[in-house]
Design a protein around this nucleic acid. Structure first.
Lengths: 336, 336
DNA sequence: CTACGTTATGTTAACGCTAACAACACTCTG
DNA sequence: CAGAGTGTTGTTAGCGTTAACATAACGTAG
């Protein structure tokens, strides 16, 4: 029930008066302190209910030095990957009783990351998750003198900061091995931007699988994650001879590749097999449905909060948590 | 420069001592109060720099009653629309000097919305943006006794709460009129979930355009925004006679429709024309590239912050701001 | 029955900041 | 040169909470 009186919302002292106790006793009830008599507790709770009292978390944060807020710094949360990760983070944080304050960066350079961290530190967050898929971001994070516990997501080696990431190398390997196992002589690659650690990891896995099979690795084609860049890479590939298998570093670019192949009359998977990466909700309905590598972004988000809370509460060692990717077979790949 | 001494970070009193002034003068400098002598100001700023002082925003919020934090409640920020809107909101809010605390809901029922709002109110946010595309959310918002300024995004009629939205009816009309102008006898529709206001608006625009042209409106097919539901609708449509034009309520479902048509050997746009809605980054690379209706989510986000800040600062009238959609012609539609 | 630990409660003092008022040095006016 | 204004600074008192200590009531052991 909301109070009707005056204007100002009720404070602890009001509840105390109503219940005939001291404000400290009210505080004890709220904080579930054991040494409160049952009858007193119910009287206090009744008063709280009657007055519609809500504890002022700002005042609480001032004295406890804990805001129960976590900061999240991310790059372009419009993209499926970051958006899903942030979603997982938010769910996990809220389940653990933490608020989430978010900063989305347009560009991840050192000063951008530094500003974001400063900004969040000013706000008094208890911990920070940095979704730092770019090398520059990871490096900025590593260099920064942090007075707040932090976790890097997809951060590669981020100095003293614990890292949670998907095993990109393994993903690249899975994709490439699948194509080789179908009898393809070699596998072409449309890679992501060189500043991105995820892109590097996928390239590394692709190269490793080719080498292990004793195959020559063609020069990878450069993309920027966008469908358009995939489209352009696809046009280049379509005009080459001997291209029978392509591993594309994400599903959006794979869509562009498929589009270019369609335009050029290249049949997938009859003439060329294509594997993507991410497993976005759309890829099952591409033409043809895309074979891809699934990343469990939700798990990454949850784990990052787990690691962060352990840091905040326990003290915490320098953890590094790697989430395995999963291979998803669909219709864009076929035997040579 | 960070201070090396002791442990505890410096507070205003430390700066005051260092600069040989009172802490209140430090506060004045920080708040850009006009009545501070230039020389004093620089002495204070030097002391701040020397000690690496950072103002404690929690303490500040306690006394000013303003946290400079805005709350955002949204449904499934994994989807492109909500993610883009939230991104726009976050950018605009930060530009205005506000923090953004976000709550992503899995389901938008009354209690979910109420809990989220309570949660944010507890945190002491200065205002709330509710991305409330579902009727239930809008209604929950309208019913709630709010003690904090709020804005609904895509909220339809949300009681006393100002609304910012895209003109969905107009979008539905644009899509349908385009198809009719190409000589199609009538236009079929794959609609979104009935609880969603956006879905309703698009249906209304579609129906209005058909009526204005004196055409019969076929029974709309139901979808849930997912590519799969579009795929299923597409299979149904493929088995019907006389379907030459389809307006699909979002691009993801349109992808599913295209996939179903491809499987059944229905040629787009030769046999059937398809129009989507949203203009997600992928749709330009569908096969064929999708004609669609673009929503400017960024503008919606920015406007919602504008309206909210006017509410917070000015007092504010009950605004209602409608953002127009834009027609994007690509290759999935053709003359009958 | 006294002394002492235990439980339940109250009192006081922070936390770090801003608001309100007080005080002082000036300048300006008549 | 007295009085009023103005600019600059300091002092004091909160904001609403929790932490630390003080106190009272009670049961129990010696």
């Amino acid at each position: 029930m909301a109070s009707i009186q005056g204007r100002r919302p009720p404070v602890m002292a009001d509840v105390a008066r109503e219940a005939g106790v001291s404000h400290q006793t009210v505080s004890r009830v709220l904080n579930e302190h054991p040494n409160v008599r049952g009858e007193t507790r119910t009287r206090v709770l009744e008063a709280i209910d009657k007055l519609g009292y809500r504890r002022n978390l700002v005042a609480r944060a001032l004295v406890t030095k804990h805001s129960r807020t976590l900061g999240v710094v991310s790059f372009d949360t419009t993209l499926y990957g970051p958006a899903s990760t942030v979603y997982g983070i938010e769910q996990a944080a809220r389940a653990a009783g933490y608020f989430v304050s978010i900063v989305s960066l347009k560009s991840i350079d050192r000063s951008g990351v530094r500003d974001a961290l400063d900004y969040l530190a000013d706000q008094g967050v208890d911990g920070i998750v940095v979704v730092a898929p770019q090398r520059s971001a990871a490096r900025a994070l590593a260099d920064l003198p942090l007075d707040v516990p932090a976790v890097a997501v997809e951060g590669g080696e981020a100095g003293d900061v614990p890292v949670v990431c998907v095993d990109q190398v393994e993903g690249g390997r899975l994709a490439t091995e699948h194509l080789l196992s179908l009898g393809h002589e070699t596998v072409w690659h449309v890679r992501g931007p060189s500043d991105w650690l995820e892109a590097e990891g996928r390239v590394a896995g692709w190269r490793a699988a080719l080498e292990a099979a004793g195959r020559q690795a063609p020069e990878p084609l450069a993309g920027d994650w966008s469908p358009r860049s995939g489209y352009e890479a696809g046009r280049s590939l379509a005009s080459l001879r001997d291209v029978t298998a392509v591993f594309v570093a994400n599903d959006q670019m794979a869509l562009g590749v498929l589009r270019a192949f369609t335009e050029r009359g290249v049949k997938v998977p009859a003439q060329v097999s294509v594997v993507g990466f991410d497993d976005i909700p759309e890829s099952e309905f591409f033409s043809p449905p895309l074979t891809t590598i699934r990343q469990d972004f939700g798990a990454v988000g949850r784990h990052s909060i787990g690691v962060l809370l352990r840091q905040i509460e326990g003290g915490g060692e320098h953890e590094r948590l790697v989430v395995p990717p999963a291979f998803v077979r669909r219709a864009s790949t076929a035997r040579r």
